[in-house]
Each structure stands twice: as C-alpha cells, then as structure tokens.
Nucleic acid binder design. Structure first.
Length: 255
DNA sequence: ATGTCACATCTAATGTGA
C-alpha cells in the first residue's frame, strides 16, 4: 500500500499539476489539504478518471480536505469536534481503507505566537489529542497532512532564524509531541533519521531555488503501521516549475 | 527585500490568509 499526502493549495488551481502527478505517481491513497472548494464544486471526475473514489470536506475559500483511494472508503467522519471544541473549519476527514483508519488533516497555520490564530492552533492540537484518544487501538491508524509544525531543528533550513517563530515555537512542537505520545511516530524521521529535507517552501523570496524550506507535512503512524513501513520520501520534483503548490507531496510505502 | 500565490468581492484593484 502506498499513501501520499499533499497540500495542493487549491485543487482547482492545481488541476493540471495534480492530474499529471496522479498519472505518474499512482498512489493507492492520496490525502489532500487546502482544497479550497465547497463540496458541490469538488472535482470528483478528475479522480474517477484515474480510478479513485474520493471523499471530501470543504468550505468556501479556505481549508478543505479530501481522501482519494483506489480501494473502497468506509466509515467516513468529518472534523474533530467535541464538547470543548466547535470545529467549524473544514480541516479533518477520516475513513477506513483496507482495514486501516486513514485521516487527512490540515492543522491551522497560527500566524504568529501571541495572536488569536496561534491560540486557536494550540486549542486545535488539544482537540486533536482528545479525538485521537477516542480511536479504537484495534484498528491500525495513519494520520497524514499539513501539520504546520517543524518537529525539530533538522526540519528547518535556518533553525536560529526560526527559533520561537511560527511552526517552530515550543508550544506548537509540544502540541505535536503530545499527539504522538498516544503512540504515533513521524514516519519520515523514523526511516530517515539524518535527512535534512523539507516539504514546504514559501512562494515569496525564491525559497525553493535556495532550498530554504521547512518539513511540516507528516505521516504519523501507529506501531502496527510502523512495522509495515518500507519507505517514506518527499517528492520534491512536484514543487518544481510553473503553477506548483508551495508544498511537495510526501509518500509512505507499506508492505 | 512584507519578494508570491489563491481566493473573494459592488469585475477591478484591494483585502485576507498563507
């Protein structure tokens, strides 16, 4: 089973690139973030033409997540709401595929420490922890998505410049670590302990040309899935050229 | 270099989010 996660930064703007990539990469499962389209406008045919069924959870202008799969998707759920967190933004969709619980997540960006958006990001992480705690461990689980957090300094092109900044601040890293404390591992880092690779490069300032990026897109896997991992790579080529997303896909291969 | 994209809106240049 090969799974990919990709923040496409608008599925409508990315249609030509996404179509070309799908034809070549052919993952069994594709998790999408920032689709930026309401459900009635989601391009179902694009996926059907490549042999995928697709489930999606979108809203106008911002956010939006989806899961495309060659195998059937069952037990689809939307969001991470509970009594403490209303979750009115379309950031999470989950489904079961071939006996594996799979979720596509788009964590809030958080703008900057000290802002309302930053507080929302930390509250979202707390809600995500409670949501995960409700998951039945008997069902293997993979969480893939744009977490908007670089877990460690190896995931940042200039750690000193970014110390304490958004996506690198300690409370955000603690939020991601607390989620993983349930029993999840960062697939890429587990398989590539020394690799300095990034998954996102800001459009501004030719970051990609200079390879100034952050690794913020992650697959988090439980022990059952971790035991099946044979590879995890970042498809940097998908970030090259015209009309690319600012994120590259991450691909996880399971035996 | 607050340098680029994508979306939305009183369809044209501006605000917003990233």
């Amino acid at each position: 089973m090969r799974l990919a996660t990709w923040n496409v930064n608008s599925i409508r703007a990315r249609t030509p690139r996404l179509t070309a990539w799908l034809a070549v990469a052919q993952p069994d499962v594709l998790l999408l973030q920032e689709t930026k389209v309401e459900d009635h406008g989601f391009p179902v045919a694009l996926f059907a033409e490549h042999g995928y069924q697709v489930v999606f959870h979108g809203q106008k202008s911002y956010n939006g997540v989806a899961i495309a799969s060659k195998s059937p998707i069952t037990d689809v759920t939307l969001g991470i709401a509970d009594g403490e967190f209303s979750d009115d933004q379309a950031r999470v969709i989950a489904g079961t595929i071939d006996g594996v619980r799979v979720a596509s997540l788009y964590c809030p960006n958080g703008q900057a420490p000290g802002t309302d958006k930053y507080a929302y990001k930390l509250a979202w992480f707390a809600a995500a922890q409670r949501w995960l705690a409700r998951h039945d461990r008997a069902l293997p689980i993979v969480l893939g998505g744009d977490w908007n957090v670089a877990p460690g300094d190896l995931d940042v092109y200039d750690p000193n410049k970014w110390a304490g900044k958004i996506m690198c601040s300690q409370p955000e890293r603690d939020g991601l670590a607390a989620l993983c404390a349930w029993g999840l591992d960062d697939a890429f880092r587990r398989l590539n302990p020394e690799a300095r690779e990034y998954s996102w490069w800001d459009y501004r300032g030719a970051w990609f040309w200079k390879n100034e990026g952050l690794r913020i897109d992650h697959f988090l896997v439980d022990p059952t899935i971790a035991a099946r991992m044979t590879g995890c790579m970042i498809d940097r080529d998908a970030r090259k050229g015209q009309d690319a997303s600012d994120h590259a896909p991450v691909i996880l291969t399971l035996s």
